[in-house]
């Protein structure tokens, strides 16, 4: 199993972006604590992909299980962006839904979702879309039961489509430079609306518009992480301790927060215009900033931290 190898990898050195889903889970958790449900040995594979002459994965591109984090029991799901872009198929989605429903009786300290997804798997589109809706309902049930649901975003597929909506349903989010959070991907916007609306080959534009730094600055994520497993572990521990309740007060506060964002920045053409209005001294310098300098910048932006999610 890939996990056995990853267990010996130094979490301080292991890149979240480069790691596989199973490596992330094993290195994130306390050593030797991961217990996977429906592991690859059970070979629960997509019944639909053979129709499209596509290869299948023994785990359908997602790892779900139980682990310890600083001695506390957590449930964890990790999408594998290297298989079908981490997209939601029937089994992939059902494993996440099952994990969240299990949380209601197991009452773990938190549920961690390690996003790495392009959204719905088109070959199983209706099943994937429905599973995303089931996941969002299940997350709300888990949060309302007082269990934090924490999203960790830094994988190569980013967090797109329905994955972006699920992320917005979580209690808290940590994101790295490589993590992108968005609904429509750059190629989707370009295909539908033209390159003058969004030039998907302009990678700097993609990172500015959808990347981790922009999301952190506007309050779309709660922690900005360096691209190491240990940074994500630290972020998860921090966020579990300060998850907002799921109630009317939280959603009223989120309504006000999002309305205020659109009122203040709705006429901005580029992320750098928004950063300037947020009070960032040198917006052009943000993309190249190292984590510590960026954290200092964030600490001066009032909109970045809130309990309104």
């Amino acid at each position: 199993m890939a996990g056995a190898h990853a267990a010996s990898t130094d979490p301080n050195a292991l890149s979240w972006y480069e790691a596989t889903a199973r490596q992330r889970v094993v290195a994130l958790a306390d050593p030797g604590s991961v217990q996977e449900f429906l592991p690859p040995t059970e070979r629960r594979m997509s019944p639909h992909l053979p129709l499209f002459d596509l290869p299948r994965a023994f785990d359908d591109g997602i790892v779900v299980g139980r682990a310890k984090l600083d001695g506390k029991t957590v449930l964890v799901a990790a999408q594998e962006g290297r298989f079908m872009g981490g997209a939601f198929g029937e089994i992939h989605g059902a494993k996440l839904v099952g994990l969240l429903r299990a949380a209601l009786t197991l009452k773990p300290a938190a549920v961690l979702i390690l996003f790495d997804t392009g959204g719905v798997r088109l070959q199983e589109a209706n099943a994937g879309e429905t599973a995303i809706a089931e996941t969002m309902r299940a997350i709300v049930d888990v949060r309302a039961a007082g269990i934090p649901v924490i999203g960790l975003i830094g994988g190569r597929a980013g967090c797109y489509g329905g994955g972006g909506l699920i992320a917005g349903t979580c209690s808290r989010l940590a994101v790295s430079e490589g993590g992108r959070i968005s609904v429509s991907g750059p190629e989707v916007i370009e295909t539908n609306k033209g390159a003058e609306e969004f030039d998907s080959r302009d990678r700097a534009l993609v990172w500015r518009t959808m990347g981790g730094k922009h999301r952190r600055l506007i309050g779309g994520a709660d922690v900005f992480c360096a691209d190491t497993v240990s940074a994500f572990r630290q972020a998860a521990l921090d966020l579990i301790g300060r998850a907002p309740a799921f109630d009317l007060a939280t959603l009223e506060a989120e309504q006000a927060r999002l309305e205020s964002r659109i009122e203040r920045f709705g006429d901005c053409r580029d992320a750098t215009d928004i950063w300037a209005r947020l009070g960032v001294n040198d917006p052009e310098a943000v993309p190249a900033m190292a984590t510590r300098a960026f954290d200092e910048t964030v600490s001066r932006v009032r909109e970045a931290d809130h309990d309104a999610r």
Binding site: G168, S184, H214, I274
Partner: peptide, 9 residues
């Protein structure tokens, strides 16, 4: 997307 469509939806 700039304004956080994922959060609003």
């Amino acid at each position: 997307e700039l304004l956080g469509l994922n959060e609003c939806l």
